[in-house]
Design a protein around this nucleic acid. Structure first.
Lengths: 209, 209
DNA sequence: TTAAAATTGTTGCAATTGCAACAATGGTAT
DNA sequence: ATACCATTGTTGCAATTGCAACAATTTTAA
């Protein structure tokens, strides 16, 4: 389940969004989503397109907190966007729906059964997000580049059941995700190849162990 | 908000738990919580005591995924406890309530308004958890020990508004949390002190910048 | 098509880190 | 009080890593 509106008909979805006073934004590439939002407590849904949650720390360094795709949700409550340290930047033309979180919680019309479904869907998505965060924490807890890579491989194969890993992003982005220097990662991948642990083809890594 | 039963009376809490066929376990120190659980999809609530979610990786290394205190919730859905890689170990005498997650989602008696409250509380807690995970990811994304410490300090002061940080755990545990070698951390803290950035007293760090 | 931009590969070198080993201190249980 | 265990501090050293700089390749946009 990846869709906030699972089990909710289009008609009911519309009703619900009206109840929640949802607004929809169509944003071009490389735009800040949050610039258009004035409420303090929101949940956003990526209807189409791609975006990233980016944090800029006190030194000006940026890290990608999360990749957002179609169906992804975000929000200050959900994804820690407090103050001006966080922003969400569209990576392509993106359609976003914004709902007011407090309004969502106060809406207590139990006659609306699709409202219950909606909350449950939200819960499921949010829990899945925790799983993903835990996985990343497990990776980042490894002290060497090699072990981060191996942990990443391990998680991938656990998910797909396959020893072939199709990288969902570029090596540059993988290095960011693993929080290691790209060139050092490149060196370590070379080592793993030389030692016969892996084989690489364009955008694909095959485990030989 | 930290309590799953916020705004729910004791009477309704009891009713709800009965509906959910909840079971309560009283476990001594250093016991595996999951050993006593047969269902596959559960949510656990720490009623009293302390525990830790621990992952053992394929090399046998253990990392602490999360500290659980009174009021904390956990579960395979919530906190990624899949297979035998994860376990929850009590750190003292601990009382745990277990509910069936699927039953929770299928329970659709909208007449029970406290059920809605329960779901909303659950949602709020889970979102808070994401915030915490994001914070840890931000810390672990830093490449040097110094920057991990400074990020940790930064987050602490952001939360409390104070330049005095009361460490919630020992230095040994802090090093684990930051995923760095304890002795190397000790060295870096000494450096920060010598350079006049911080001052330390027992269980307390004061920022001088 | 072609120029520009982004991604990838490579390597030397300095800096940081983990590791190991041990001393010192503090806390706890008997 | 004392023996035991956990936490903390310290340091040398080897290994790993980040950084910088540059070449090669691929992708993108005009």
């Amino acid at each position: 389940m990846n869709n906030l509106f699972e089990n909710i008909s289009d008609k009911n979805k519309e009703k619900l969004l009206k109840f929640l006073e949802a607004t929809t934004l169509n944003l071009p590439k490389n735009y800040s989503v949050l610039k258009f939002i004035t409420e303090t407590d929101i949940i956003g849904i990526i209807e189409s397109g791609k975006a990233q949650i980016i944090k800029t720390d006190y030194n000006g360094n940026q890290i990608i907190i999360e990749d957002l795709e179609e169906g992804s949700i975000f929000g200050n409550t959900i994804s820690l966007i407090s103050g001006d340290e966080y922003d969400i930047i569209t990576k392509e033309e993106t359609k976003v729906t914004i709902i007011d979180y407090k309004r969502l919680l106060s809406l207590d019309d139990t006659k609306l059964n699709y409202y219950n479904d909606f909350i449950k869907n939200l819960l499921t998505i949010v829990m899945k997000k925790i799983k993903e965060k835990n996985e990343r924490i497990e990776i980042l807890s490894k002290k060497t580049i090699r072990n981060r890579l191996l942990e990443y491989f391990h998680i991938s194969t656990q998910k797909t059941g396959s020893k072939i890993i199709y990288l969902p992003f570029s090596y540059t982005e993988l290095a960011d995700f693993l929080a290691i220097d790209r060139s050092a990662m490149s060196r370590e991948i070379k080592n793993l190849k030389n030692e016969g642990f892996i084989k690489t083809t364009k955008g694909k890594i095959t485990l030989l162990y």
